[in-house]
Design a protein around this nucleic acid. Structure first.
Lengths: 394, 394
DNA sequence: CAGGCTTTGTTCGACTGTCAAGCAAAAGCT
DNA sequence: AGCTTTTGCTTGACAGTCGAACAAAGCCTG
């Protein structure tokens, strides 16, 4: 039960029936400021989830799936219907008895604003409640300009996107932001971000509080990608690693179906784990032999430049590999081996069911994964690798 | 003054009417099928926990701590009192008002049987509900004899210990077993245990089912130690690593206050992570440069033998270090560095708040921890090590 | 095609856990 | 002795859940 006011509403509107009609003042949801009225949504969240995921689409289904009484389900579904979060999508074929009513999640009941803020460019979107984008924009933007400037810009873009999607600010149900650095998720503050000057300790939800009155979620971009991948393709998997290989290397950890952030929100920072045999490579963090300095896109581009190829960043590395340049291919495959060494250790430690490779260099996953698989299967325990899949991101 | 007429103390004040007698048959816990009668214990678990841990000892305390109404607390406490899981331990000093009644967990309400099965010897105990041992026994026992033989022996020992502690089989509320290998916790089966021939897939709870009708929990011994350490000393810490350095090297992972077991129950197997610069060392797993083969107690003992010292196992290594042998000390410190290298990677990946070092070699933690700290702080990111403590087990 | 069967959805009374408010008890303080 | 403060207990109300009965809407059988 979320705290907050409890409606008193003595008898007045009671329509006779015992408890069923309930007063109209109560409401669900996490944010106590919502003003919508209607029947109580208490406990309806899990029911809504089942409908949204399509795991159970009729009332009888829901009852069987949750173990609740049919009457309870009916009550909850009524509440969801009243809030227009769900609608009846016609009947279905009978299986010998009364044909069930199919329920469907109303993904048009509102919109969500999302922004993936990279170091130098960003992607913003308005999407419906089933995560289908309604309007998108990609733009260059330097996160180093500081929170006030950047968020002001983000806010302005959100306004435009809303207009473009034909929705009003009132339709917004939530905001999600991904930033390229460690985040204290509960407060929505970046902590010690190496590439986000001026953001340390800045409360991003606080900034949005006066502008959109909805929950704001801020997280490390890798964590968001990990969660997205888990949600869309690996929903039955409990433990998953998402590895982003771009300019740098980071890792989102899904443990027990939830993001593991660690004590300081710094978990998953595998870019600075030492790789054997590369003690001559100096990393920007000051140490030597870091994975990022050995196998990161930035490092690969630099080494390709050194042998005379035209490669400014990780995307250029991808381009060269795609074009079939043998030196680039060999280098990426070797990077995959280095990554594999670190991942082998992580597999022994964490024992995930799946490793997903994403990021810029994930686009040449054939080469990268070949190296990764080669080393992980050699260096990890058989039990841990028995059912381990290493796959590219989608 | 809306008071007016209120029935105060309607005559039969106590009467303990209805349910309070409730015999001692019922019990709290997870299984919903319990048939014991008496007041409902619904939701009383959290209240019981607060009392047991001493976090809240009076009814008013409990109300403040849980945020529940005082009346609700009273009801729950009544249920616990009726079940004799809690008793009133007299009053306490007043702070200006009515002095509160102190509640105490009745750790004599039952006993728990626990067994820590090692590879070659075991520790068994009967303990009360506050984990205070009432009777203990340590004995040599080869786990390789197979489950039927070993569990038969365990069962017999449990019987003796019960008698010794003056308790009856009826008093047993639960059984906990630690085994030296990966365990599928939900089913209580060992999976692919390298040093437990004949146990693979054997259902340990199934074996006990007919003998004690109580829940049986089986887990990897390292996980149990990790949980114990977390429970006794680090209860406020969300993420913790417990590293056991004995003959081999293993690691229990506490993530989000719970054991992380991984997809196959193999998580925490850091003994076979590769350590740089030791590719000449062959491990029993077949690979080279494994941490266990470099820094495990068995490996250290072997290397001490090679230079002419008398060291058969990890305990002998401890003895030599304690006696001040400089070669043994140097070797352990060097082992600490190797361990530190692996832990540095684990810290970057997992970002725990605490690392606890235990096991045989944990007893010479000064030497071991020196090496561990040296390397972890050098090789891990500042953010992750900022508030990281590395401490010996207690 | 009527009647029976099966499955689904709805209604209704009952029960349980919770809460707020008031009352009683047991101290310290003036 | 009075007053205040803190604690514990009692009571009536309410929300969410359940089980049982009932209604609806299709198949199947004779």
């Amino acid at each position: 039960m979320p705290g907050g006011e409890r409606p008193k509403d003595g008898g007045a509107s009671q329509a006779g029936a015992g408890a069923s009609q309930a007063g109209a003042a109560s409401q669900a949801g996490t944010s106590p400021s919502q003003t919508g009225s209607g029947p109580s949504l208490a406990g309806a969240g899990s029911v809504l989830n089942l409908i949204r995921t399509g795991d159970a689409v009729t009332r009888a289904d829901l009852a069987r799936r949750t173990g609740l009484a049919r009457s309870t389900i009916a009550q909850r579904v009524d509440a969801l219907l009243a809030h227009e979060l769900v609608y009846e999508a016609g009947g279905s074929a009978s299986t010998g008895g009364r044909p069930p009513t199919v329920l469907a999640f109303n993904h048009r009941a509102g919109v969500v604003l999302v922004a993936d803020l990279g170091a130098t460019h960003s992607r913003l979107a308005v999407s419906d409640l089933s995560a289908t984008p309604l309007a998108e924009v990609t733009a260059d933007m330097d996160i180093g300009e500081g929170p006030e400037h950047v968020l002001g810009w983000v806010h302005e873009q959100f306004g435009r996107l809303l207009k473009k999607a034909g929705r009003k600010p009132k339709d917004v149900r939530g905001i999600g932001l991904g930033v390229p650095g460690p985040v204290a998720f509960s407060t929505g503050q970046a902590v010690n971000p190496p590439i986000m000057p001026g953001w340390d300790g800045f409360s991003i939800p606080g900034w949005f509080a006066g502008r959109f009155d909805v929950p704001v979620f801020v997280d490390n971009d890798v964590n968001i990608m990990a969660l997205g991948e888990h949600w869309t393709h690996w929903r039955d998997t409990e433990h998953l690693l998402f590895v982003k290989v771009g300019t740098g290397i980071g890792c989102g950890i899904v443990a027990n179906r939830a993001i593991h952030r660690g004590a300081q929100g710094a978990a998953g920072d595998i870019g600075h784990i030492r790789v054997g045999g590369h003690d001559d490579v100096v990393c920007r963090c000051g140490n030597t032999g870091c994975l990022e300095a050995v196998a990161g896109g930035g490092a690969l581009a630099r080494r390709l430049r050194e042998i005379g190829l035209d490669a400014a960043n990780s995307r250029d590395v991808v381009r060269l590999v795609r074009s079939g340049d043998p030196r680039a291919v060999r280098m990426v495959r070797e990077a995959g081996r280095s990554l594999g060494e670190v991942l082998a250790a992580s597999v022994n430690f964490f024992n995930p069911a799946v490793i997903v490779i994403g990021g810029d260099l994930g686009e040449v996953h054939e080469q990268l994964l070949a190296g990764v698989r080669e080393v992980t299967f050699m260096r990890s325990l058989p039990l841990a690798t028995r059912d381990l899949s290493s796959v590219p991101s989608r």
